[in-house]
């Protein structure tokens, strides 16, 4: 007779819950970036509102995780599932917070003209969104290789971030009238860059889950 069926079910459920939260977070990141690009205050407000659901889900799932650890005393792979579950949850929650930060910035920027230096920000956002998606794919399929490649994409993000930083400084120097917008955009690019960092955390967690080894990948 197979043992620990209910425990296995609980672990599978945990992963499902995490993915459910992940899809909400992905959506919020996408919406936040869209609201910025389109100067859409309504969408930004929606992002901010949506974060409440994500927070609630976060606490709920984290609680499940803790309960699982307390009652089932997982070891070996089971322990890694529970630990990486908590890690990924935390990363997702931080990402969602950054999405909210972006949305808030959007609301401040809505009534100001768009500046040219901004064009790289959507590009960086696309890369970061791809990273988040790849990270979660790697998690679902236990794909260590994909997780590694995803973490490698962080270099691109860093490169773009440096580029944007330079452009924004340039813009401020040339026209002190855009300093406010440019400063806000500096924040935004920083937020997006942080999301990429959290995505690599997910990648590291996936590698730990599958191999049992922690490796710093960025």
């Amino acid at each position: 007779m197979p043992t620990r069926q209910s425990f296995d079910k609980a672990l599978a459920e945990l992963q499902q819950d995490i993915l459910r939260m992940a899809s909400l977070v992905e959506q919020n990141i996408y919406n936040a970036v869209q609201s910025l690009v389109n100067q859409n205050a309504e969408l930004a407000a929606q992002v901010i509102m949506g974060d409440e659901d994500i927070d609630r889900l976060y606490w709920e799932i984290e609680n499940k995780c803790v309960r699982l650890i307390a009652t089932q005393q997982p070891i070996a792979r089971d322990l890694r599932v529970a630990i990486t579950g908590i890690k990924i949850l935390l990363s997702l929650e931080r990402m969602a917070d950054h999405a909210v930060d972006i949305a808030r910035t959007t609301m401040c920027l809505c009534d100001r003209p768009v500046i040219g230096a901004m064009e790289y920000i959507p590009r960086m956002a696309r890369v970061v969104q791809q990273m988040v998606k790849d990270g979660l794919d790697a998690y679902v399929h236990g794909d260590v290789e994909k997780a590694r490649i995803m973490c490698g994409m962080d270099d691109q993000v860093d490169y773009l971030f440096a580029h944007i930083f330079r452009d924004l400084l340039q813009a401020m120097r040339e026209d002190p009238g855009v300093i406010t917008q440019a400063a806000y955009l500096l924040y935004v690019s920083r937020y997006i860059e942080r999301i990429a960092d959290h995505a690599t955390n997910i990648g590291e967690a996936v590698i730990y889950l599958e191999t049992g080894e922690w490796r710093e990948l960025n």
Partner: peptide, 10 residues
């Protein structure tokens, strides 16, 4: 070993 210590044995 994994199967045994995680209780998925037999």
């Amino acid at each position: 070993t994994e199967d045994y210590i995680t209780g998925r044995f037999g």
